[in-house]
């Protein structure tokens, strides 16, 4: 039976992933055994410039980050569509693929223009017109 080449590729990736994990875990285990221990009431306290912590770090992050996350998501997925184009480009058709790629990027660029106009890229504490 013919083994597809991609399967070999996967086996390489898998072996390397396992090796990387072992390579990372090994020193940690070794360090656990040879390192001395310290003591103190506040040793396990969260560090905050030498002061007792006043509130948890798990709070809601600024809303602007969500905007950028959404923008990224939309973009990244669309950009991925370009990958097949790269391989097929310039093989066969004379001008059609250039026109198509231009239209595609043009539409994507409009997103940036729109976001820019709506003020996504200006950081304010409270974005007003969104």
């Amino acid at each position: 039976m013919e083994i597809p080449e991609a399967l070999y590729d996967f086996s390489y990736v898998l072996v390397f992933l396992v090796a990387a994990a072992l390579f990372a875990v090994g020193p940690l285990i070794l360090a656990y055994f040879i390192a001395p221990r310290s003591f103190g009431k506040t040793r396990d306290e969260t560090y905050e410039c030498g002061m007792p912590i006043l509130s948890s770090a798990w709070v809601q992050v600024a809303v602007i980050y969500y905007l950028f996350a959404l923008l990224f998501l939309a973009f990244d997925v669309d950009v991925l569509f370009l990958f097949p184009v790269l391989l097929a480009y310039g093989k066969g058709y004379i001008w059609r693929d250039l026109v198509e790629i231009t239209i595609f990027i043009g539409i994507l660029s409009l997103v940036i223009v729109y976001a820019w106009c709506r003020g996504v890229f200006t950081w304010k504490r409270k974005p007003e017109n969104l």
Binding site: C49, M51, L54, S56, A57, V59
Partner: peptide, 13 residues
Amino acid sequence: LEEKTYILNLGPQ
């Protein structure tokens, strides 16, 4: 979330 603000110590170290 109850409070949107939180307290951060900057310093003394």
